[in-house]
Simulated scan of single mutants.
Amino acid sequence: MSTPEERVAELGLTLPEVVPPLAAYVPAVRTGNLVYTSGQVPMVEGKIKATGKVGAEISLEEGAELARICALNAIAALKSNVGELSQVARIVKVVVFVASTPDFTQQPAVGNGASELLAEVFGEAGKHARSAVGVASLPLDAPVEVELIAEVR
């Protein structure tokens, strides 16, 4: 069985550097056997990948891909806290915020981009409870933001 880090590589991905906080917070906090990540926007190499609202400038498919990038950034924040991703016993909860037009109602489909990546990386332990909600705006005009809670060993 391959490690989560090996599965990231098998997917053709690289864990990025942890996105520096945009304000007064830290990327991840551990309390007991839970790690909470701060919300992660779709930053790639220090720049926001796309801006705008899903349902206007951003398509549902683009939104799902951006959610995948957010989840990869959340995995990096998680790893920075626990050292090795094999320490993750389970992804417990994921929250996906989608900056969307008032008539857009496919937030769960956007969130699938994040959820599917977590299942690919962590297998059964990556299957989680989730909320996907529409919001008026997000930091940096990001279309998507993802946070997660993980149980660790």
Rank of each mutant, 00 (worst) to 15 (best):
S59R: 05
P102I: 11
A64H: 07
A99L: 04
L78C: 05
V146T: 04
A64Q: 05
E124T: 01
V96H: 07
V135E: 06
L138I: 07
A136G: 12
V121M: 03
T101C: 11
G32R: 04
E6C: 00
F97P: 03
A132L: 08
E147G: 07
P108V: 01
A24Q: 14
N112F: 08
G32Q: 04
L15W: 10
E147L: 14
R90F: 04
T14V: 12
G113R: 09
Q106A: 15
G46V: 14
G39T: 01
F104G: 07
A28D: 01
L117Y: 00
V54K: 02
A136K: 12
Q107E: 14
Y36T: 03
A136E: 12
D141L: 11
G32S: 05
G39E: 02
I58H: 06
I91T: 06
V96G: 06
A67I: 12
E61K: 14
T14F: 04
V82I: 11
T101N: 08
V88A: 04
A119E: 04
V98I: 10
I91G: 06
E17I: 02
V41S: 06
G55W: 15
A64L: 00
L118C: 04
I75T: 02
S38K: 06
K53C: 03
L78S: 02
A76M: 03
P21F: 11
P139E: 12
L72G: 07
Q106L: 14
A99M: 00
V146S: 05
M43L: 06
A99S: 05
P27I: 00
A129M: 13
A125H: 06
E62H: 15
S115A: 13
A142P: 05
L85C: 07
V94H: 01
S115L: 13
S86F: 09
T51N: 02
M43G: 04
T105P: 03
E61C: 13
A114P: 09
V88N: 02
S131W: 05
S137P: 10
L72Y: 03
L66M: 13
G111W: 08
P42A: 07
E10P: 06
K47A: 11
M43T: 02
E65A: 15
N33V: 11
E45N: 13
G134R: 06
P143N: 05
I75A: 02
E6W: 01
K79N: 03
F122L: 01
S131H: 14
A56K: 13
L72N: 05
Q87C: 14
K79P: 04
K79W: 00
P16D: 02
R153V: 12
P139D: 10
R130V: 12
E120I: 00
A56E: 15
L140M: 15
G111Y: 09
P139S: 13
V88T: 07
T105Q: 12
R7M: 10
K53S: 08
R153H: 08
A89N: 09
S115C: 08
I69P: 05
T37F: 00
E124G: 02
D141Y: 14
K47M: 12
E17Q: 03
V144D: 00
G113C: 10
R68Y: 02
N73W: 10
E65V: 08
